[in-house]
């Protein structure tokens, strides 16, 4: 256990809770102030020589929402990701980037056990969430998914009314309070309320693509999750709608931990606080290459492959 920086980080975590500055103080400024000095202080720590993942220091004292330890995922006999160890900082946006087929989405789907739904899918390793291992079969996947919400690549509102779309999750999770307030609050949070407040009975499918995706975000936050996973949430949207979603992500990051998979480098740079770069080798197994504050990754990558990818030398 003592072999990597997790130990260091974990030991510092409890104290950091108190020391952490109030979330509102750093609303839309992703790079922490001491960013520039970081590379000199924390040149990457190599975990396991075989994995060759490079890590930057986190540069801020922060609590972790999730900690992935040597997570591997398989589809039948095919291994999609191999032994990925990664912290997910709380109330920050963490981006997973990498070329197609590097296992970003697979890794993301491990985090709320959506992979359980795929026949033959299997996850090994440990995902630490509030002192429990998410992957442990005794942990209820349904409970995990309630607390770790998800927004998908293609907007997928239910073919029901806007109201029902938002209310569904709360209803099935035993919420018995003022549903109208809850729906309104969730839609406000998703910056959709003003556009739809007069037509809550309209079908969710009747909205535009960008609105649909925001409805899906409203649906996800209506169950009050702690973490929201987003799987390329803007890839099916036009630039204007994409911008809205990105703004929304920054806003939501004040209160929620967000993990976002994206193809779009600029997007990762704009919205994320931390970035993990994944890459699949010859055998198409995804591995973590580098993880650190977004600014660091983009300006000072420690791994040649990261630099190649960021500068566009990978396909």
């Amino acid at each position: 256990m003592a072999r990597n920086f997790f130990t260091v980080m974990r030991s510092s975590a409890p104290s950091s809770t108190a020391a952490r500055p109030s979330s509102s103080s750093r609303s839309t400024a992703p790079p922490p102030p001491n960013m520039k000095e970081a590379p000199a202080a924390g040149v990457g720590v190599h975990l396991d020589p075989s994995l060759e993942a490079v890590r930057h220091d986190l540069t801020e004292d922060i609590e972790m929402a999730l900690e992935l330890r040597e997570v591997s995922a398989f589809y039948g006999t095919f291994q999609a990701v191999d032994k990925i160890s990664l912290p997910i900082p709380k109330n920050r946006v963490t981006a997973l980037i990498g070329p197609s087929g590097c296992g970003k989405s697979t890794l993301l789907r491990c985090l709320n056990r959506m992979n359980d739904l795929i026949p033959g899918a299997r996850v090994e390793g440990e995902i630490r969430f509030e002192e429990r291992n998410l992957i442990d079969p005794t942990v209820d996947a349904v409970e995990v998914r309630r607390r770790i919400g998800m927004v998908f690549q293609k907007p997928n509102p239910f073919p029901k009314s806007i109201y029902e779309n938002v209310a569904f999750g709360a209803r099935i999770n035993g919420y018995s309070g003022d549903m109208d307030r809850l729906v309104e609050d969730a839609l406000r949070r998703a910056a959709l309320w003003d556009e739809v407040k007069d037509e809550l009975d309209k079908s969710g499918l009747a909205l535009s693509g960008g609105q649909q995706q925001r409805l899906c975000i409203a649906r996800a936050i209506a169950v009050q999750p702690e973490i929201i996973l987003m799987d390329e949430p803007a890839s099916a949207l036009d630039p204007v709608a994409t911008l809205k979603i990105e703004d929304l992500m920054r806003e939501l990051a004040e209160h929620y931990t967000i993990v976002v998979v994206t193809h779009n480098m600029q997007q990762a740079g704009r919205v994320s606080d931390y970035t993990a770069f994944l890459l699949a080798g010859e055998e198409r197994v995804g591995r973590l290459v580098e993880f650190g504050p977004t600014q660091e990754i983009f300006t000072n990558p420690l791994d040649q492959r990261t630099e190649d990818y960021i500068t566009g030398r990978y396909g």
Binding site: N112, M114, F152, G169, V223
Partner: peptide, 8 residues
């Protein structure tokens, strides 16, 4: 997936 993702 959408329904599972909100904890159904």
């Amino acid at each position: 997936e959408a329904a599972y993702a909100v904890g159904a």
